[in-house]
Simulated scan of single mutants.
Amino acid sequence: MKVEIVETKNITTYVGIRATAYFSNLGESINHAFIELTRRKDEILNIKNLNVTYGITPPNYKGNTGLVDFYCCYEVEPIFNVPQGMVHIHLLPRTYTLTHYVGPASQTGTAYDYTSNWMNENGYTYDDVAYYFERYDEKTIIKDDNEKNETKIYCPVKKI
């Protein structure tokens, strides 16, 4: 795996479907939300790239035993008329780790562990007031837990 520090410069906007469940059951809820997002993509105006989707998480995951949210989205520019039943999210410019993960989707958690270790070794800590996000494109292969699956994982960070 490769981890690097990236700085976003602009506010980015996303429109999509919210999945809510207990963390232990979140996968099924996320699958349903992505199916609905794909089915309803024609309702979303100004999608920047139809081949790229995002999974966005609020900073409430660590140790949370209650319900958590996950947003399955497309990036849009500009935002205009959010479809009924969908949500919109704005991500502000900030510093992120960018982890390039290659491996089965079921093992994506190992990328977060790797990122945490990298951060500890390089003087960073999580900036837990900001959203995390994953970028999925034509190299992302969720089906059959494919070893060639590629995901880009962005974690908000700050220097210690």
Score class of each variant (00 low, 15 high):
V15G: 01
H88Y: 13
L67M: 13
D69N: 13
T38A: 07
S106T: 15
E75M: 10
I56N: 03
L37I: 04
N81P: 01
I89H: 12
K143Y: 09
R94S: 13
R94K: 14
I35S: 05
A105R: 02
K48Y: 03
I142D: 06
E138Y: 06
P104D: 06
G103E: 10
V157L: 04
N49R: 04
V52W: 02
V87C: 08
F80H: 10
G27H: 07
E147A: 09
E121Y: 08
I11S: 13
T65C: 08
N51T: 04
V82M: 07
N120K: 14
D145Y: 05
V129L: 09
A130Q: 13
D137E: 04
D127R: 06
A105Y: 15
V3H: 15
E28V: 00
E147N: 08
A130V: 00
K139R: 13
K41S: 10
C72M: 04
A130H: 14
K41C: 08
Y124E: 06
Y154P: 08
V157T: 10
C73M: 09
E138F: 00
I44W: 00
T95V: 12
T65P: 03
T12W: 08
R39Y: 10
P59C: 06
N60C: 09
T140M: 08
M1N: 12
N51P: 00
V87T: 11
P104Q: 14
W118N: 04
K148V: 00
I5N: 03
N81R: 13
V102F: 01
L45Q: 11
C155I: 14
